[in-house]
Design a protein around this nucleic acid. Structure first.
Length: 754
DNA sequence: GTATTATCTAAGTCT
DNA sequence: TAGATAATAC
């Protein structure tokens, strides 16, 4: 591609041509930030820089992949393939595997995901005999994570009167001890959590000058995307790596900083000026993405934030239509209206399904939307919730793979030691854990030498444990002989997992079995594509350890409406965007409203949501929403009032009106259900519980004394007595051949026999 | 030790 | 509502 610089505007071009020295690009939404990054890397390569010497850090794997493809198409040879590009976590885990021995790990270390980490914390709390209501695993986990991101080790923690005092007041004196034990157990298991990947990289670079020098020399040019969302540890690592050459380019937008809960720190942008006094700043302020109505609407919102770097986002684009704000009765109606509108636009404007995105604050909101889209036969894909690799059945098989690669992996071991059931129960496992703790070794080491560690268990259990050890060892022997697929298939079948999932013929069971097959297919694909010698299961596992479901897109997911959280939508754009659930306590979220900073971050989040839209934007809220089992009244979000009414469809906004209009989108008449597009439910979708004709809120009142009912376990029976009301309604039922039982109707799925 | 059912309780964004 | 845990039956 010749004259590739001609594809850039003035300010983009100057930013791209500035190859040397520290620089910061402040880029508004839709201003071509990614374009500057890709062209800058391409320009570096075209100007003779060895791509081995470039490091580009992105926020998602997907962004890295797309950017690499674009760069390859610009430089038109394979020069770009040596480029190091990926997320912080991916790039650093690669470095850590190379240098593992230096920090007392081996290169086969496991990466614990959030679920693994939480499970470990849970068992530590249990082993210490602490009250799990006082020590909630999720809370402890968050606290450990934020301490790690602030460089506070368990030792530092113990030396800080302030921190100790905080926990004393919260009656969590044992926190420090949990933290310490957690770290110890991770090391013993040869495992790192997500935070460790960053922290250990920092320690590696800090304590081994030769290693630091090696990477400083390697990465002569460093580029960082989404700089506003880097945390303190990431900041320090970049600073270290860039110290020798100072060719560092960071790109970001303070107005789009939405990850403070993960330790992201706007201070990093301000620090930049201190660290590199002779840095250059570039501002990209022209928006190419959205209509002027959308750009101006977004601007009118963000001015309500006090903390901001000065910049003016503007556009030459058409005015476009005004944004529509829609009041709905409840979440179901909101879903219906969104689905109807999408369908209408799809027909009227001859668009594709992938032109639409529905964005929400929390994953739980996807339910009502899914249902509505399904009813209208609109194909959709949903990001968020569980990633494919986080599903129980997938994690179980992966746990076998993990054990083969790193037998010390405690969390993997706990998953499979009794799955499929082989008679090694909770009591035996507890004994093993205690022995492992007492001897400061991993559970696996205890299993391999039961006598040595003096584990007191009966003969039967000993025999079973020995069988288990033999089984795992047989896999370990095969590990280096077989390719990834052959090994995976053998393990899945030989361990009994395959059979266990196959024999479950319920709808959920079938879907679980399909997921297992999908996993195996993925591994097969990997084996076939990999170069000889690189087709081992270990490498497959490294590949997937840091993948999210956004990276797992299938080919048939292409033409579908996208449903995702706003966080997940960062960096993306869609012609038509629906932002739903604009209600107080939901957006802004309840937890953020007591601090100015929290509220400002929510506002930035809304800003991100608005600026995803290219052509049209729809905002909606419900007067009532189904939350934790019942309908709750809602008020419209304060953010709606902050929007400049000039850019909004006035007739629709009636915030103070009590009664919802029947057809809030007057532009679209009543719709018919389409027949053409087939519903495609992807495997990524959350399963929707089959709606049985059981008793639910609506026909609860039909249950009266004397009515004949059927219970899934107790069989047929007759209601003798009803007491309580609403959610706590109970019935005393006499079941044939079983006797009298008192049941909470909310849970007992009684079928009415007429 | 295992499997099933009853009851309780939480409630957010993600690598 | 759903996921986790406790209680119960086998």
């Amino acid at each position: 591609m010749d004259n590739y610089l001609e594809h850039l505007n003035q300010s983009q071009c100057t930013a791209v041509r500035q190859l040397e020295g520290p620089m910061m690009v402040i880029a508004g939404p839709g201003s071509g930030k990614t374009r500057v990054l890709t062209y800058r890397i391409a320009h570096l390569i075209k100007s003779g820089t060895d791509s081995f010497n470039i490091l580009a850090l992105t926020f998602t794997n997907k962004a890295a992949k797309e950017m690499r493809n674009r760069i390859e198409s610009i430089v038109e040879n394979h020069e770009a393939r040596n480029l190091w590009m990926g997320t912080f976590h991916a790039v650093f885990s690669k470095i850590l595997r190379i240098e593992a021995e230096k920090i007392n790990y081996t290169s086969n270390f496991t990466i614990y995901d959030t679920a693994d980490a939480k499970s470990l914390i849970k068992s530590i709390i249990k082993e210490m005999g602490l009250d799990k209501d006082l020590y909630k695993p999720a809370v402890i986990q968050n606290r450990i994570s934020s301490l790690k991101n602030s460089f506070i080790s368990p030792k530092d923690y113990g030396n800080s009167p302030e921190l100790l005092q905080t926990d004393k007041i919260a009656r969590r004196d044992a926190f420090g001890s949990i933290y310490q034990k957690y770290n110890k157990r991770c090391v013993k298991s040869g495992a790192m959590d997500f935070d460790d990947l960053l922290l250990n990289t920092y320690h590696l670079l800090n304590e081994f000058p030769d290693v630091l020098y090696k990477y400083q020399n390697k990465f002569k040019y460093i580029l960082v995307d989404e700089y506003q969302d880097t945390n303190h540890v990431q900041y320090l690592i970049i600073k270290k790596l860039a110290a020798l050459n100072e060719n560092i380019c960071v790109v970001g937008d303070d107005a789009q900083s939405i990850y403070s809960f993960r330790g992201a720190n706007i201070q990093n942008i301000l620090n930049f000026k201190v660290d590199y006094p002779d840095f250059k700043t570039f501002k990209l302020e022209q928006n190419y993405r959205s209509t002027s109505n959308i750009v101006n609407l977004a601007n009118s919102l963000i001015t309500h934030n006090k903390k901001q770097i000065e910049k003016e986002v503007w556009t030459k684009n058409n005015e476009g239509e005004k944004t529509i704000v829609c009041k709905t009765l409840n979440d179901n109606e909101e879903g219906r209206i969104v689905a109807n509108t999408i369908y209408q636009l799809y027909i009227k404007e001859k668009t594709n399904w992938q032109d639409y995105a529905v964005l929400y604050r929390t994953n739980a909101q996807s339910r009502a939307l899914e249902e509505a889209l399904r009813k209208k036969n609109i194909p959709y894909k949903i990001y968020g919730g569980l990633s494919f690799y986080a599903r129980k059945e997938v994690k179980d098989v992966l746990a076998y793979f993990r054990i083969c690669i790193n037998p010390k992996d405690e969390e993997a071991l706990k998953r499979i030691i009794n799955y499929p059931t082989r008679g090694i129960g909770a009591t035996t496992l507890q004994k093993l854990i205690i022995a492992a703790n007492n001897n400061e070794v991993s559970i696996w080491e205890v299993i391999e030498s039961l006598e040595k560690y003096e584990v007191k268990i009966n003969k039967g259990s000993t025999e079973k444990l020995n069988q288990f050890a033999t089984l795992i060892n047989s896999y370990i022997v095969q590990k280096d002989k077989l390719d990834a697929y052959a090994l995976a298939e053998q393990i899945a079948k030989n361990s009994g997992v395959f059979h266990d999932l196959y024999s479950d013929k319920t709808a959920e069971g079938v879907s679980r079995f399909e997921n297992l097959q999908e996993l195996l297919n993925g591994i097969k694909d990997f084996s076939e594509k990999a170069v000889a010698g690189e087709n081992k299961l270990e490498l497959f596992m490294q590949d997937i350890a840091l993948l999210t479901n956004a990276d797992n897109e299938k080919d048939d997911d292409y033409n579908k409406v996208t449903l995702m959280t706003i966080h997940a939508a960062k960096g993306l754009e869609f012609p038509y965007v629906f932002v739903v659930g604009l209600e107080e306590n939901l957006f802004p979220s309840m937890m953020t409203m007591d601090s100015r900073d929290g509220l400002e971050e929510e506002r930035r989040l809304f800003y991100v949501a608005i600026t995803r839209a290219e052509k049209r934007l729809f905002l909606s809220y419900a007067l009532s929403r189904f939350k934790w089992g019942q309908y709750t009244d809602c008020n419209p979000s304060r953010f709606l009032e902050e929007l400049n009414k000039k850019f909004i469809e006035e007739s629709i906004i009636k915030l103070n009106e009590k009664v919802a209009e029947k057809k809030p989108y007057k532009i679209f008449a009543k719709t018919k259900t389409p027949t053409k597009p087939k519903p495609r439910i992807t495997k990524n979708l959350k399963k929707v519980s089959a709606t049985k004709q059981n008793v639910n809120a609506s026909n609860l009142q039909n249950l009266q004394v004397g009515v004949n009912v059927k219970h899934s376990r107790f069989g047929k029976g007759k209601i003798l007595k009803i007491e309580g009301s609403d959610a706590n309604k109970k019935a005393t039922v006499f079941f044939e051949g079983v006797g009298q039982k008192m049941l909470l109707l909310k849970f007992a799925r009684l079928e009415i026999l007429s």
